[in-house]
Design a protein around this nucleic acid. Structure first.
Lengths: 332, 332
DNA sequence: GGTAGTCTTGCAACCGGTTGCAAACTAGAT
DNA sequence: ATCTAGTTTGCAACCGGTTGCAAGACTACC
């Protein structure tokens, strides 16, 4: 059925090696031979089998793309950028969904069986041990959206979550809110921990401002809505920094359902700047993660790790910016 | 670096064939040998290389998952369901993003190079020729969310778009709207054409109702918003059937920006029931596609095609249901 | 103990490529 | 025409597995 090297070789009247070399960058073939081979290949519709060649070259050009975030709309953008970025570099994403997994072992095994060249773990909720499991199995790995650490064990690309927390605090301080709070994602997520830390740190300099902290059970609309509804039953803060846009939208919904207005009664600032946040009927003030830069850097990093081996684990962090829309009151 | 058959064979004191057979379902190995091999394999941390074995077996367990829909939130759910469904069956999704592609040739070549066992084209906007290109290259293929046709050229799984159009029309008729309209996606998308057809067909039975049709330039929030804004500058209909939820939300935004209310001034019914549509601050009345059923059937179909070859092309269509929320006026 | 039938096993060839090596060829210099 | 250096080429071994085949081991039965 499929056309192989041998067929092309026979048709072009050359050896199999000649055909192989014709399709190998930088191999030694004469112009004449190459032309003969090319023509025979075209006539037969031949294309080299990437998997067969991976056997000898040790490269599959397959990159495992591992995530557990299939409910946060931001991840559709993430997948879009990853797949395009990888494709542009001639790499193929092998997608692994570990929504239900708590143990990396199965994924490690699977990606080893497919001899992926490298692995990108794209998640802000998976613990560092996941990425490390891949590293320990000898695979080049990058943790995107992972935790910033001074001494990372694997390459990490993302944002400085604590800095974002401070940025959110500054934004609320500038707008003279007197009672503010952090509405985080799951308490166990490192991203939430770091954002909370930065937020609270900065507010320590302002003892006149009252500060609260609470956590939603997940990074999801429903969790944000439920937590805000709970908060509204007591005396709510004047403004909330939500640990993620999807939480913000949930919170926004709860506030509106309670008959209160945003930003009139309660101010909200999120984090991520997902596409939906810019929709005019959401119009969320938020902190934008430079997604494209993060993903570009993740791919670069995994590629150089594949090519040159892993040097010292690196943390590449990108600065965020406040996107001002309509959910915080204006600066007075 | 990696542990191979040979290493295990040496350690267990058996031939390579024995090791291979130990890991092959239904092969003939004695209990004793199997035990020896298993132990040696465990000690060495051996796992068979899936790609190497694919060379002889002709099966990679790789399924190409091809899409161009990376901006409609519904597709995050789609990817979630596909990846989980494939994983459960021991298959791996190789993701192909052809957002910018107009020509299937490159994707066909690439998926052939990786010897995928089958291909799933998941898109309601790609023309049938894309799926056919894979079929013509000899790959088992299923077009999910593709066009229903009495004589399909490839397997198609999805919904009966014309029936959905009729369903939307019925819903508007039941609510006694006198001036209704279809607000479609891109005019070239088969899904939009069919939905329009069903909608208009049904309304032909009601000559007393005034009917309009217009098209947004894409299945996107912004396109829906722009088109609705344009419509509002003239005399708008009383209720719109939007060809997709993401269009509906855009339209909703435009209506609200114009200072009008939904469903007070204008009614909206969408199609898809994406997660966001259920968010309380969107609360969109819509027609739900049974996503899980469609995706399950797509996987089943591609699997049986891989195993038994492609019989007559089949169209599996699933019924939709109206999800009543808050964007149509109550039945009077 | 002998024999037929069934299991198990290793050999060797093969899947579709790549690559080190040495032979064959080419071109240039003398 | 001869020699040298550099290219091009095919052979054969290899990547990590699978599998048809025939020989060897085992079981059961007479």
């Amino acid at each position: 059925m499929a056309v192989t090297l041998k067929d092309v070789a026979a048709r072009a009247g050359v050896s199999r090696s000649a055909v192989s070399r014709t399709f190998t960058e930088g191999a030694s073939v004469s112009v004449k031979t190459r032309a003969k081979v090319k023509q025979a290949a075209d006539e037969l519709g031949y294309h080299p089998n990437a998997l067969a060649s991976s056997l000898t070259t040790g490269r599959t050009k397959l990159i495992g793309l591992v995530s557990n975030n299939f409910h946060n709309p931001i991840f559709l953008e993430v997948f879009d950028l990853f797949t395009r970025g990888l494709q542009e570099r001639g790499l193929r994403p092998l997608l692994v969904n570990l929504s239900d997994e708590t143990d990396p072992a199965a994924s490690v095994r699977m990606l080893r069986q497919y001899s992926v060249d490298g692995v990108i773990v794209a998640s802000s909720t998976l613990p560092p041990s996941f990425a490390e499991a891949f590293k320990n199995a000898g695979m080049p790995v990058v943790h995107s959206f992972g935790r910033h650490s001074r001494t990372p064990d694997v390459h990490v690309v993302g944002i400085d979550n604590a800095a974002c927390g401070r940025m959110a605090a500054d934004e609320l301080i500038r707008r003279s809110y007197n009672r503010v709070a952090f509405l985080g994602g799951p308490e166990g997520a490192t991203s939430t921990q770091d954002r909370a830390r930065g937020f609270l740190d900065r507010l320590q300099d302002h003892p006149e401002i009252e500060v609260g902290v609470s956590y939603a059970s997940a990074y999801s609309f429903e969790a944000g809505r439920a937590e805000m509804a709970r908060l509204l039953r007591a005396v709510p803060a004047e403004a909330y920094f939500c640990g993620d846009d999807v939480l913000s939208v949930g919170a926004l919904s709860a506030v509106q359902e309670a008959g209160l207005s945003v930003p009139g009664d309660i101010g909200l600032i999120g984090l991520n700047d997902m596409e939906i946040s810019g929709w005019q009927n959401i119009d969320l003030t938020t902190i934008r993660q430079p997604l494209a830069a993060i993903i570009g850097a993740s791919i670069d990093l995994v590629v150089t790790t594949v090519e040159q081996g892993m040097g010292a684990p690196e943390a590449r962090l990108f600065p965020c910016e406040v996107i001002e829309r309509g959910t915080l009151r204006p600066i007075s």
